[in-house]
């Protein structure tokens, strides 16, 4: 059992005091995921000045404004494209992209799969709350069938994305999914992700009682957490289940952990090769 520092200690060390309080609603899960991330950074003893937080638009994307690091709050869906520029320009910087599901998988879905394909060295913390919280609760590409949103007043009729699975098949080095309820696993996954080269992603099922829960008969965070417990299935167990049994369930766990070379390493080798080909270097 690891020693857990008090939340105050973490807050005082890593948050921008002049930006608090955060804009998050009571019961929102973003704070938990944020805390896991900060604790992971703390546990690993990473240098605060060598990390840049990047985000797009949405509730989760406001996080870089609250933490005391270099931070780039960008346009909707494009965080990973911005991150590509930062990382390749200054490979010494570690990049954390804090993203929501709408941002990462709807408008930003393409940048997501292409960053994964390139194996961009970045750790994505993905807050999946099944909704667009900031604009008032529209359905997202992750919204499960039948769930409601302001733009699906009669229940979502589209099929949802499984972001983690998509990341695995696009080629990410590390992919895990937890609900914010699984705090130890979540934190450990972030720690693993932060230590790896290449693209790493930790997805969190995160309660949004105000924009999402309220419209789906789960007004409070505990109700949502209980629901997550009900619909999540650990990977080991899921492997033994039939597709029909998995209908409507969400698998949690570590999906992949591999070591393909990251984009930065590839680019360094590329520069060497270019110079060699042009006779600039032996």
């Amino acid at each position: 059992m690891m020693y857990l520092k008090s939340a105050y200690e973490i807050r005082d060390k890593y948050m921008r005091k002049d930006m608090l309080p955060t804009i998050f609603c009571p019961g929102c899960g973003i704070g938990s995921a944020l805390q896991f991330t900060l604790r992971a950074i703390d546990d690993l003893g990473l240098n605060q000045d060598e990390i840049v937080w990047v985000s797009g638009i949405g509730c989760s994307s406001r996080v870089p404004g609250f933490v005391n690091f270099d931070g780039l709050h960008t346009t909707h869906g494009r965080a990973l494209a911005f991150a590509t520029g930062i990382k390749l320009t200054n490979p010494d910087l570690r990049i954390i992209a804090f993203m929501g599901d709408g941002d990462a998988a709807a408008i930003g879905g393409n940048h997501l799969i292409h960053a994964i394909r390139r194996n961009l060295d970045v750790t994505v913390i993905l807050i999946n709350n099944f909704t667009y919280g900031m604009t008032g609760g529209q359905v997202a590409p992750t919204t499960l069938k039948g769930l409601r949103g302001t733009t699906a007043p009669y229940g979502q009729f589209e099929n949802p994305f499984d972001i983690a699975q998509l990341a695995v098949s696009a080629g990410a080095n590390y992919v895990a999914r937890w609900s914010v309820f699984n705090y130890l696993q979540g934190m450990n996954s972030i720690k693993k992700a932060l230590q790896k080269e290449g693209f790493t992603l930790v997805e969190f099922l995160s309660p949004c009682p105000v924009s999402f829960g309220r419209r789906n008969r789960m007004k409070t965070s505990p109700e949502l957490l209980r629901w997550y417990q009900k619909i999540t299935v650990p990977l080991a167990k899921a492997k033994k289940m039939k597709p029909e049994e998995l209908e409507g369930k969400i698998v949690i766990g570590e999906f992949v952990d591999r070591d393909r070379p990251g984009l930065v390493r590839e680019y360094e080798a590329y520069k060497k090769r270019a110079k060699k080909m042009m006779g600039w270097e032996e």
Partner: peptide, 20 residues
């Protein structure tokens, strides 16, 4: 990519199969 491609090709069919 005059000095060779350092990126990994997207596996389109595999990705789209898993997208649904």
């Amino acid at each position: 990519s005059p000095y060779r491609n350092i990126e990994h090709p997207l596996k389109i069919s595999e990705t789209i199969a898993s997208a649904g």
